[in-house]
Design a protein around this nucleic acid. Structure first.
Lengths: 205, 205, 205, 205
DNA sequence: AATGAATGAGCATTCATTCAT
DNA sequence: TATGAATGAATGCTCATTCAT
């Protein structure tokens, strides 16, 4: 969890790793989640990463660029996982349940990312913000399509608009960061199962 | 010198007796919701309110103090309303449903407050933050007690911890600010009814 | 020449003087002339003026604004003086000669302003630059009109375009800053007389 | 390591044997003239020249070194041309006229060099600046000697110090960069003829 | 109750230059 | 001959806050 003062030589030879860039992203994520984007200075980030400002500006265009990269990483991960669960074989109710459990477990595993996401969205440049929102919407739409599939199959009730159910459920997901603590009694998967149960129950006829 | 904890009740019943203070709070709320606490300068707030900095520092101790007042106002309002619904006569399911509809309608009516709440909590001084969290917890606990009452009455399922249901539902509530737009098709009460329906459905045996 | 550490109370009561603002302009002029606009830091200016950066930014929008004020002051002075000489009674040759002597003497009296003028013009924001150039052009046109008047009166030769004569003469004027030194043998007026003689001689039939 | 004071003469007669170095100088000249020395970054220069910083630092010791080379090139060219015209056979008045026309035409042909010359002189290291000024003085003195020759021959008036006439005339020359535009009606030689006429006329008895 | 000049610490960013490769 | 990662010092500017009036 602490950063490596000395970068180990790449023994795997797999990813030609860029330790400085990665370290900067990791420390920025941690600090943005802890203190907020605006309250974190570039100096704090580079000090935490053990490099100088010049190095940071060599890899990133700006402090905003750092934030943008964090968003891109989160979205990439979540969309990829959802695709996997949504496209799996099996009854629709099972797929929704599994996807719901997974998104919660993943969110809890990357809770710093989640804390940053909604708290700092308004700090992005308008066009970047638009891009992020569009990507987020695509994600939500993918989940909504699953719900609609269940409604058409008459497995889920259809008297609540699927879009609204998505906002209902993802509100719960996105707020995990404000109350969940790793030292709590419940694991991420446990929370995921409970929430998924509640979601599925709320959709019964 | 600045903040009177207790202010004389508005005898006229109007809102014109302290227009500067109110205007400052209103503009600060609007700007904090729009651009974030850190990105809003004191100068912007006082310009928007049509006064000078000196005037602001006469009524408030600091920029943080403005934020604290906003939080206090939000919490005061929400707790008061919940008490009213929780303590009303009638079956538990009806009371929970009514309280749920109301909290959503009220949140949508004061969407700026809601946007600020979670986005800016970390900007408060640690002790203030603690106080706000405690107050928030009291609010959640009051709602949880309603759910527990329903579980004891065997009206609600008991296999999901009531605390978790509270986090589940209020996650949805608190995220209204990220997607709800006044120009949308659904009124606040309409959204409230749908969300309350989902909540009640998820609690059925 | 050195700045007054203690600002004397305004005994004249005439101009409600702003010593800080004036001191900033004076020191900025001196430093810009000495080291150039880009090579002079805001810190150097405010240190020389004995105030803090905040004070400077209270009176000026930016470092550029300081430069703009210097330009405005120079142009105001020069246009005003030219108008006086151009509009005086007397033969055209005498008026041109007197105006020429005066512009040189005035330029030498404010040599720092002159050094800054052409050396730093390109640092102004494009629109400000345009405005300054337009004002400068008005000034040159006023002088040209005098020359044309002399040509029409057949006092000056007409086989050289008056515009070109203006550029010819003002080139000499504007370059005073690159070679004239106060410790030299010639006074500003002496140089002025010689240059005015050359100008008038060059215009003879 | 970097700068060879003496480079092998271009045996091919082309300009392709050291394209990187030449391209760097050309782009630097263009950019310094356009935006000023201080406002042009090394990165901009190397990008414009299509090379990297390392390449630039291979050919030049520093950014200042680039500027010094530009000055050296200008002075070399102008002194060489003046020598040619001054040493030609013919009456003194004709030689002065021809030299004057040529310096103006040459200046206009290399207007960027001229723009840089006076605007950026103060950015040179003091000793370099001194060297450039000395070279410039030698150039002016060569021209002054021509004027003195004319005065001794009683072709030119002697009641104006020749040095002052040099400053008068070269002021006009050096300011060409502030008003002359290639798209104007007058060619460089045309301007040169007019200015030379004015100079000669101003020197008549 | 209110002004506005002034502070001073802090911020994001730039940039010429170096150096291992 | 050339790269590009990294430095470190400096820069213009912002801003919450104070205080004499």
């Amino acid at each position: 969890m602490a950063r490596n003062g000395a970068r180990a030589p790449t023994t795997t030879g797999g990813t030609k790793d860029e330790p400085v860039r990665q370290r900067l992203l990791a420390e920025a994520t941690r600090l943005f989640a802890e203190k907020g984007f605006e309250s974190t200075s570039v100096q704090e980030i580079v000090s935490a990463a053990g490099v100088t400002k010049g190095a940071m500006y060599h890899y990133f265009d700006s402090k905003d660029d750092l934030l943008r990269e964090i968003y891109a990483r989160v979205l990439r991960l979540q969309i990829e996982r959802l695709e996997r669960f949504a496209g799996a074989p099996g009854p629709i109710a099972d797929r929704v349940h599994a996807a719901a459990v997974d998104v919660i477990a993943t969110t809890i595993e990357n809770l710093d990312d989640s804390k940053i996401f909604f708290r700092s969205m308004h700090q992005l440049a308008p066009e970047t913000q638009k891009a992020v929102r569009a990507e987020r919407r695509r994600y939500h739409e993918r989940f909504r399509d699953l719900l609609v599939e269940g409604q058409h199959a008459e497995v889920f009730r259809a008297d609540v608009p699927a879009d609204l159910v998505v906002d209902f459920f993802f509100g719960s997901v996105h707020h995990l960061g404000t109350w969940y603590h790793t030292d709590g009694a419940l694991s991420g998967t446990a929370v995921g199962k409970h929430f998924a149960d509640l979601l599925l129950a709320s959709l019964r006829h």
